[in-house]
Amino acid sequence: MTDINVSTANPDDIYAWDAHDTRQGRQVCGVTDRPEQATRRLADALAELSPDAWGTIRAARLECTPKHDEFRYGRVLARLRLNPASGQLERMRRG
């Protein structure tokens, strides 16, 4: 797998990943405290979806309140796709 750095400088951040497959109408997502695990899980999810699937990894924080807990999502750290020829994750170009 291509080395894609998605770490943030904030040790309190966690990493939310999601894979989108509009062809099959599927979405897979998860959260982890390790950036390399988010990258690996996203790659695994994309490998199970159609070749035009794509995904994101974003910074997140868990906010705990007396009523409920919720994730607060930050900026997108990477937009990625799996190259079907090489099996490697690639950053998506904007535009």
Rank of each mutant, 00 (worst) to 15 (best):
D33N: 10
M92L: 15
T39W: 04
C64R: 12
T2A: 13
T32G: 06
Y73T: 00
N10I: 06
L62G: 01
A38H: 08
C29W: 11
N5E: 12
S86Y: 03
T8W: 13
R94A: 12
R81F: 13
P11E: 05
D13V: 01
C29Y: 10
A45T: 02
H20R: 13
R34I: 08
P84S: 03
G55P: 04
G55L: 07
D69G: 10
H68A: 11
D13L: 04
R72F: 00
H20Y: 14
V28L: 14
N5L: 11
R79G: 00
D12C: 00
G55R: 09
W17G: 06
D18F: 03
A9W: 01
P11T: 06
A16R: 15
W17F: 10
E63I: 13
E48P: 04
D21C: 08
A16T: 11
T32A: 05
R94Y: 00
T22S: 08
R26M: 14
Y73C: 01
R93S: 13
Q88T: 06
V6P: 03
N10Q: 13
Y15K: 08
R26S: 14
P11D: 07
A53S: 15
R41L: 15
N5T: 14
A53M: 10
R34D: 08
Y15W: 04
A59I: 06
G55A: 05
V6K: 08
D3V: 15
R23A: 14
E48W: 11
G87K: 02
G95W: 04
A53H: 07
M92G: 01
I4M: 13
E90M: 10
M92R: 14
V76P: 01
Y15R: 09
A47I: 06
E70Q: 12
D13C: 06
T8Y: 12
L49M: 15
G95Y: 03
D69C: 08
A78P: 00
D44T: 05
D44R: 11
A85T: 13
T39H: 09
A9Q: 08
P51H: 06
R58H: 08
R61W: 07
S86M: 04
N83Q: 05
D44K: 07
D44W: 01
L80G: 05
L62T: 07
A43F: 00
H20N: 12
L80Q: 10
L89R: 12
T65D: 01
L77A: 02
A43P: 03
R61I: 02
H68M: 06
M92Q: 14
R23Y: 00
G30E: 11
R40G: 09
S7F: 10
P51R: 07
H68T: 05
R93W: 00
G74D: 05
D13G: 03
E36A: 15
A60W: 04
V31T: 07
A47P: 05
E90W: 02
D13Q: 07
T32C: 07
N5V: 15
D13N: 12
I4G: 10
R40A: 15
P84K: 01
C29F: 12
R81K: 14
E48H: 15
E36N: 13
Y73W: 03
P84T: 02
T65Q: 07
F71E: 10
R91H: 12
D21N: 05
A43H: 13
L82I: 05
Q88G: 01
A85S: 09
I14Y: 01
T2G: 01
G25E: 04
A43Y: 02
D52Y: 00
N10G: 04
I14C: 08
S86Q: 01
T2F: 04
P66G: 02
P66E: 02
P66C: 02
T56S: 10
N10S: 14
